[in-house]
Design a protein around this nucleic acid. Structure first.
Lengths: 396, 396
DNA sequence: TCCGCTTTGTCCTGTGACTGGAGAAAGTCT
DNA sequence: AGACTTTCTCCAGTCACAGGACAAAGCGGA
């Protein structure tokens, strides 16, 4: 099968492609209403896009009181690959050009095994998706990694939790393997893009997306665009100090947020509580599986275990304390909480909200929703697909 | 004298005006090199600008080996007014279209006296500048106020330290009085714009500008543009909590940065130290004037007073602690420290740097300059002039 | 002083982008 | 069947712009 080779020739075409991606099939007239071009000019650009094969006209829509319109839509054969590499798991998904997830696989994994091993796994997952008939090839791929990335080159830089990846040419390597364009970004940024595209953050210009997984990070969206900072490390809030002489952190400092609350810290604290006999519920679960995760803590809390609830509340307070500072500073229109620990649900959210609403000024919090992400683990892969489609749907 | 009435008719003209503003007089050929237009098109636009009177061609430049070029420059009669209202003082300045300060007056004042009284003072200062022959009238004015502003309307909203100003139509009122367009912004944002235009932040895309005066605020520049947040309160870092059960703050909370370190807090702590006999130096100064300010503390520190030095270091540590968090989050390319307390100089800066470099990750701090602002009190008024010129030098 | 050479600025023409209107095609409603 | 809508196409005219030819103005060497 021939893959997408053409790119939009000008900004009008790029605009149209994104419009079709974000709002689905449209008639020429509907497109004209949204794009501020004369109908004649628009028809020309649509015709050119039809020639390239990026969009197709299939069938006629129902009449709305006059001549029936042609359905203009993105080529249905286009396929994007979304890869979300976490600290302990990989998500791989296939989407169509409208970024709808057609297939999605999750597998456990350990980033510390290094890029070669992880890539092998990603490729085998990709092959599985291909074999299921969802895609014969890919027109583009987006990939998220759990650490800072030099964005233009698509290369991780000095990632604390994945030391073997420093400088590894992720973009180039994956592009060669897949034979299609690839873009790389921080996993947190992709989550933000996912929630922006298909989740709770639609139509919000400025928002924060706090991801609490194994580590803690924050996606920053300014004017609808992800902000990555000068060296690509913007949003790295896991190492903000929350306690002057607090717990030691992997980064070498003490009292980092991540050392006090994160998936890893929560698991550690829960195991400690279980061993010290402070929670029969947790101790039982530990005996069952030999290990505890935030899922166990969530279950224990749901069962009414006081220690589990305390752990969640304490973590939420810590997180809320940091978010309160960020809200004062950034004055976002929305704060999204996502990542593995969202299973902790309302208890966590309530603690965060309490801190933020108490500590930040009313002008900043007055109309500020603080909500859980609504896409869960698909946020990352949708964000990844969106990343590459933003790239491909821009003038060459 | 007739004032500026025309506005650039298109983006090319706007671009040319800003270019002339930022890099002074230019020949047509030089403009063409910077603007990516054909010489013919450029000539047309320049001619149209000449017709409007916004720019003039005066004289010929020295030859550079060929035909001598015409000097194209912004109309020398254009005048902008920059007003910077602080908590305890007002700055008013006149600039030409290139934003060079032609005259500058500072006077003490108390914002809490309310907008009417303050406006009276501003107008009398303006009259003084006018009387000195620097300007017959103004083509535009920018004004900064020490609190959040609903930017599009130019109206302060819920400003903590200037309660009487809430909702006062600053923009409209001043525009009527002066008979020219007016733009209003937070004083901290204007300081950032000033340092960006003529100070240490030239050619830095993403930076933070921390202003420590009576209160503490932070200007945020993203991609060369000031970021104001959803409700205009972005950068309000004075009320970030630095100590769980710390000093009570005017905002009603406890432990805010501003309550622990700011011009006001420093003066309070210094007076306390003087009364308690912890510093002969400070006590002497208090006896002299009956009141202490950061200037006295700076002088005492310069004289080697240990208490004064301790106060500065403690404040710097607190501030550095907050800035470290912001650096992790925002990953700026530069941090500028400005405001009244910059008189504390290197002692303060060293304490801040120590905290930031210790607490933030190397990737964010590796190439991060932390410097004092170089414009001092003129940063605000230059920023104000720049604000209105950005507005006027954009397509109508 | 004349002649090349350089730089600056102006003029002119051709091309492509774009608009807006006329009108055809295809439908609904009375 | 006729009036009215909506969608889409076609066409002619306008404007933006590039690029080249050329004039103006200066320099330096022969």
């Amino acid at each position: 099968m021939r893959r997408m080779t053409a790119r939009p020739a000008n900004t009008h075409q790029a605009r149209l492609l994104r419009l079709l991606r974000d709002s689905g099939p449209n008639s020429r007239a509907q497109l004209g209403d949204q794009v501020d071009l004369s109908r004649s000019k628009l028809a020309v650009e649509v015709d050119r896009l039809l020639e390239t094969g990026l969009v197709v006209a299939d069938g006629l829509a129902a009449s709305r009181g006059g001549r029936r319109s042609h359905n203009i839509r993105l080529a249905p054969a286009l396929r994007f690959l979304g890869v979300d590499i976490g600290a302990t798991s990989v998500d791989v998904a296939v989407t169509n050009a409208e970024l709808e997830v057609l297939g999605h696989i999750t597998q456990p994994m350990d980033v510390r095994e290094g890029p070669v091993a992880v890539f092998e796994q990603v490729l085998s997952m990709t092959a599985k998706l291909r074999a299921s008939g969802l895609a014969e090839g890919f027109d583009g791929a987006g990939i998220g990694v759990p650490g800072p990335v030099r964005f233009p080159e698509g290369v991780p830089v000095a990632p604390p939790i994945m030391p073997g990846w420093d400088g590894f040419p992720v973009r180039e390597a994956l592009s060669q393997e897949l034979g299609c364009p690839v873009m790389v970004d921080n996993d947190v940024n992709l989550m933000a893009m996912g929630e922006q595209h298909a989740g709770v953050a639609r139509s919000v210009a400025d928002f924060l997306c706090v991801k609490i997984g194994t580590g803690v990070g924050c996606g920053i969206v300014v004017g609808g665009e992800v902000y990555r900072g000068t060296t690509g490390s913007a949003g790295d809030i896991g190492h903000i100090q929350v306690e002057p002489e607090g717990r030691p952190c992997a980064c070498g400092n003490r009292g980092c947020l991540e050392a006090h609350f994160s998936g890893a810290a929560l698991a550690r604290d829960a195991e400690e509580a279980a061993r010290q006999g402070r929670s029969a519920e947790l101790a039982g679960r530990l005996a069952d599986t030999g290990i505890l995760t935030s899922v166990d803590v969530a279950a224990a809390a749901a069962a009414g275990d006081a220690t589990a609830l305390d752990l969640i509340r304490a973590g939420g307070n810590r997180t809320g304390q940091v978010i309160a500072g960020l809200v004062s500073f950034f004055n976002p229109g929305l704060v999204v909480i996502g990542g593995g620990v969202t299973g902790l649900g309302h208890t966590l959210l309530a603690a965060i909200r309490t801190q933020v609403y108490r500590q930040s000024l009313p002008l900043a919090t007055g109309n500020l929703p603080i909500v859980l992400g609504e896409l869960g683990p698909t946020a990352g892969v949708i964000g990844a697909a969106r990343l590459i489609s933003d790239h491909l749907f821009s003038p060459a």
